[in-house]
Design a protein around this nucleic acid. Structure first.
Lengths: 296, 296
DNA sequence: TAGATATGTTGCAATAAATGATATATATTT
DNA sequence: AAATATATATCATTTATTGCAACATATCTA
């Protein structure tokens, strides 16, 4: 039995919904399903009665939930007792991350850290992902959450949080799509030299798009260069052109049903989202504490 | 953090000796070392001060040990509370296993089970491994610990405990070895038709040896057919011939320094040691409880 | 002081486990 | 009856774990 399983279980015991719990933990429903089954197997009792439409705790499940909550609480207490025993860590960390990352990961990362180190203040800056690394390199920020570039400076430490594919998006409205020269059907019929594109001004996503066009001996007709993925989604949804953003941006966007992902080959190389800091920063107790906090 | 890690840690905190703890858990020292390092990494503190000659708990290590012992105790309590809540399981299980298995695995398996189900009596039969499966098939025993044959009857359930290679052993004494026609140097110089062999009468080890000889177009000159691996080791150590036994038998034998393992190619297929029972037996609560107890 | 021994760690190749995408089964709603 | 929602099974792929052997270093022995 491990802490992760206990967390999964107790969350599911609250939601009684595999889909929502798996989403909360950034994993697929099937993975969650197998986790639960493995717990049940280890314990030797069924913990949830689930037909395909509802999930209910069994008697043993309620017992186990009691145990799980207590056990998790003790674990957190132990962690806290360790950190508060010596000198309580005091200070501040400046963290730079994109708006998208702040939606999807920040809460998970910060909530646990905060419990552990309440005396450490977090200065959070959100903005365009492109300059994130430079800001860390130049010492403006301690840590950044961003996509990993192909060539990582050797002075930089990186810790992956998630992988998200980089996708082309088109307006969902059929008329708008056709007026852009993009019938949703066949890639081969699209003249990429004439499709108006909405792209980042700089950064990883931009350089990968440029590379993609070079591979096709095409040159993007740039309708607008925008700073920030969320703005790209907005413009695309309004029918101004085709955009390229990490899929995770779509998933968290309120405009999710206004745009649709295009199925193109070859796919763009996926975004490798994670934490960055200068390796030398890891010698600092505060930064080190933050770094280790991220569950592997 | 998981139960296994806590167990490893607290055992090491007692012994303060990587070698002994790793042995107790049937794993290599390197595996243990990396387990500990991973715990330290997750917690963010060094738990043991270890130079290459001594191991000592740090302050944080002692703290963690307190936590670990308490946490493990609560886990056991929870398990017990589940099983004792309904009707306490009462009854008996008959278990058949080889002498070797009784040395190496039985204690681990039974000690935990006994704590969980004190009202279940264990009837233990030790003997030659060869007939173990048949005895279960025929209903004389509920469960057997033995090596997995190549063709497992579909009515049989199997759960692996360990893998042990099947090895040729020769007497360690140089004179004895040479008089058997086996200079320890080169396999190719050995005339396998003339080397006196000491083999099991039947069973997996025997059939794998026969197959090995057939591959070489040789026929074993059988000096003696013996029942029980321990007897084979005895006869080999006395210089009567060459034997074939699972390595685990050697490791647990008092004669370990009287025999030596021969380096031959191709190697015999390894022993796959584990638990057997009839699948239909797993419907029985008592058998099921035992089966699930075995840590995966 | 030099060699032998004990002991924890690291590199590497092989094995085992975990994961997500997809397909499937079935209950509920429309 | 068709569409939708939801948990699970299957499969290919990725990731993690493991043991062996080599290594480094501390202690013991002569």
């Amino acid at each position: 039995m491990d802490t992760k399983s206990l967390q999964l279980f107790s969350h599911l015991a609250q939601t009684l919904h595999f889909g929502r719990t798996s989403e909360a933990f950034h994993m697929s429903p099937s993975t969650l399903s197998r986790h639960i089954k493995q717990i049940e197997n280890e314990i030797g009792h069924v913990l949830f009665n689930r037909d395909n439409r509802s999930v209910q705790l069994t008697i043993e499940g309620e017992r186990f939930n009691q145990y799980a909550l207590e056990s998790l609480s003790q674990w957190r207490n132990f962690r806290r007792s360790l950190t508060t025993s010596g000198e309580q860590l005091v200070g501040e960390i400046s963290l730079y991350c994109s708006v998208t990352a702040s939606y999807s990961f920040l809460y998970d990362i910060l909530s646990e850290f905060r419990g552990l180190h309440p005396k450490i203040e977090m200065k959070l800056h959100t903005g365009d992902p492109a300059p994130a690394l430079a800001r860390v390199m130049e010492g403006h920020e301690d840590i950044a959450i961003a996509a990993r570039p192909n060539n990582l400076p050797s002075s930089m430490a990186f810790k992956r949080i998630a992988i998200s594919p980089l996708v082309f998006i088109a307006p969902n409205d059929v008329n708008a799509a056709q007026s852009l020269g993009v019938s949703m059907s066949a890639d081969s019929k699209i003249n990429w030299n004439q499709v108006p594109m909405i792209l980042s001004e700089e950064g990883i996503s931009r350089s990968r798009v440029d590379q993609w066009f070079r591979q096709r001996n095409a040159k993007p007709k740039i309708y607008a260069q925008v700073s920030g993925n969320e703005a790209i989604v907005s413009m695309v949804s309004l029918g101004f052109g085709i955009g390229v953003v990490p899929k995770i941006v779509i998933d968290n966007s309120p405009l999710i049903d206004k745009v649709s992902i295009m199925d193109l080959q070859p796919e763009l190389e996926a975004y490798d989202v994670g934490l960055f800091t200068l390796k030398k920063n890891l010698a600092t107790p505060i930064i080190k504490a933050f770094w280790q906090q991220i569950n592997r």
